[in-house]
Design a protein around this nucleic acid. Structure first.
Lengths: 120, 120
DNA sequence: CAGATGTATTCATACTTGTCAATATATCGA
DNA sequence: TCGATATATTGACAAGTATGAATACATCTG
């Protein structure tokens, strides 16, 4: 994926600000210690909420809050089974994240000179 | 890089909480619309602060704040040239970021069953 | 149906963070 | 040396967020 691929997503109106906002929302979903722990918890497959809760030092309502953020950004899938909620990494979400990060972390070889009209 | 690679980084004491904290710090460095714009600005090579400033709708002091965060987390290198500051993506930092994200976004095939002793 | 249990929601609170104005610092040019 | 210019720092403030207690909701079990 290259720059123009992503920019083309942004149509006339929202000026491309939309894409940044959504990307920030995705990134923020990862920007928390406990949510990183939760993701590691899900590395090996689906887990139910009570198992995740035992691995963390937080209350149940806080876990529910974190799971909501992870699900809302598309990185985690949820499945309700009776009283229990099962969570797992979404393959599709995972790939969307990888693409996004690749985009911002890429560098494109060029002359590398500063295009500033003042300095240099 | 696999899970044990990263966990081995955390020695006895800080209990591995250190690694999470550092990872969160890195992720938060990306979790802002303007900082994402700055990174795109640097895709094609080194740029001086005044050029970056022209591309964003923020004041100079705000830009300075953002650049500090990006540099402190190791993703951006800075070079002072007289009055001007030149910024560029750090290749090494970029790779550290990629490794970290790969870690949290990986999934390891296994049975996938829930290890909970209550449900199912 | 009634109590127990797993999860979600609401609310209040402490903390973090993005922003700008004002100011400080550093460097250049005359 | 003195003013201009580029960047950094400080301080204040509004907005966002992680947290837990209390409570609501849903589902199971007897």
């Amino acid at each position: 994926m290259n720059t123009s691929d992503r920019i083309s997503v942004d149509l006339q109106e929202g000026v491309d600000t939309m894409s940044y906002k959504e990307d920030v929302r995705m990134i923020k979903a990862l920007a928390d210690e406990n949510r990183l722990r939760i993701l590691e918890c899900l590395h090996h497959g689906e887990k139910c909420a009570c198992v995740i809760l035992e691995e963390l030092s937080i209350t149940q309502s806080t876990l529910s809050h974190h799971m909501k953020l992870l699900c809302d950004c598309g990185l985690v899938d949820s499945r309700k089974d009776g009283r229990w909620m099962h969570y797992s990494i979404s393959e599709e979400g995972k790939n969307r994240f990888k693409d996004m990060f690749s985009h911002y972390l890429e560098t494109i070889d060029s002359d590398g000179g500063c295009s500033c009209d003042k300095c240099e």
